[in-house]
Design a binder for these strands. Structure first.
Lengths: 248, 248
DNA sequence: GGCGTGCCTTGATCCATATCAAGACCATTG
DNA sequence: CAATGGTCTTGATATGGATCAAGGCACGCC
């Protein structure tokens, strides 16, 4: 069990000078991979591990952007809300992902844990120090920003111009590529474990839950996918889904 | 008149060692503003001015991203295309804007001149050199990337969740803020000069030209705007438009 | 001035997706 | 095992914006 702290998240331990970075499971997939292991102590001095329970929010849009985060395990959703409650999920975050680039003085999005989540927190000043001391970090952050911008472009195309079928196909193919990159899976495994609800998928794709449900079932009827459980989907015809995602 | 060069753009002059950067009108609004004027010659060594006529494309999605650009005058549209011709404009670029952050090995978007456009071109290696020599550039590029990412989030919300009226209101308010930042305009001027066509507006907002036209006329009937000419629109009630843009 | 040619507007109709409304499923709890 | 409550599916209907189809208007060209 973890200990509650005022700002709605929980620390796993003080870790003031400990070497959590040396044993970090997310390291190879995060910006920290550019810092060699012998400098782990430096890294650890400016970062703190914390855990966030499922459903708990840990970044609030509009709040001063004082901290940056790296996801060390679990999944998060990043979203914007309109005053009447309309929601747009701007992205999902997996292990290794850096959070906070899309911020000026304040965060441009809110973030919430989809499942049990652990994070590594950096203060703005701590990260500045690290960036100064490890110039390779600068490049890696820039790459991260570029990658996110490229992704943002394709999401604009999806949200602005694709049909519901194309959106779902794009989503499934994207999840496949994300999950096939993971260590413990055989590359031929075409079964997805979705960490998010139908509501989240709808808010990610700019659709309603009904349309998501109906469209997934339509894809199943056409033998492109099999819905084994709500959160477990097998892609039967990846090439066809990729073609549909592109819109041809 | 300018000289045609193979890759469909035109150089204004060789400028090998000349000091175009010292007199650059875009400088104060671009990333170059972090480099002090006495280093202009260095800057000029790695950059080349070129001009692009209206309607000409100068970045092609999917091509190797060998060059970066800064808009020195005029306007450009950045967009993605689907195989069947559906188009999503991901952004418009004004004087000072840096182009090329949303790229890995290849460009993630195409770019085309909306009017007579002048650009400053940096090769990838030239920019790397400058980034090494002027560390302030690094920070400025990172800020630029953050700003673009914040903008991308709000565009996803617009494309995924806003109604046609809200999209047009958002667009008009955005154009107002962009144009009221310009030197030569009195801050109270609420008349916009739009550099883009109805088709471009539609492709920017994920709508059709008919819906753009109808919705603008509806806003005029409600005395929120006056359409003086196709490309000249006065905002009568900025507060109401801002509220509509937010969705409340 | 007349005449294309390209945009833009306006009207009529259609349709993909939203909305509204039950039900089904499933996990949890008493 | 029944009751409860959340999430998901399925069906019926509505609707915002797309599509189809004429015009209108401005600008360049002969």
């Amino acid at each position: 069990m973890h200990v509650q702290v005022p700002d709605s998240v929980s620390t796993l331990g003080p870790c003031g000078g400990c070497a959590h970075c040396l044993t970090c499971e997310a390291r190879s997939r995060s910006i920290c991979s550019v810092i060699s292991p012998e400098h782990s102590a430096r890294l650890a001095r400016y970062s703190h591990r914390l855990s966030v329970p499922q459903g708990r929010s840990f970044i609030e849009e509009g709040q001063p952007a004082e901290d940056f985060f790296i996801v060390t395990s679990g999944h998060a959703k990043l979203f914007s809300l309109m005053p009447d409650g309309r929601r747009q999920i701007t992205g999902f975050a997996n292990t290794g992902q850096f959070l906070g680039l899309a911020s000026g003085k304040t965060y441009a999005f809110s973030a919430e844990a989809l499942d049990a989540l652990t994070l590594c927190r950096f203060s703005r000043s701590g990260l500045s120090t690290l960036r100064r001391d490890f110039p390779a970090l600068e490049n890696r952050l820039m790459e991260e920003a570029s990658r996110e911008l490229v992704q943002a472009q394709s999401r604009m195309l999806l949200l602005g111009r694709k049909t519901a079928r194309e959106r779902l196909a794009s989503f499934l193919v994207e999840q496949h590529h994300l999950q096939s990159g993971l260590d413990h899976r055989p590359p031929s495994d075409r079964t997805l474990t979705l960490p998010m609800s139908r509501t989240d998928i709808a808010d990610y794709l700019g659709l309603t839950i009904e349309t998501v449900s109906r469209t997934l079932n339509a894809l199943q009827r056409e033998h492109l996918i099999v819905i084994r459980f709500v959160t477990l989907i097998t892609l039967l015809d990846l090439a066809a889904l990729e073609a549909m995602a592109r819109g041809d």
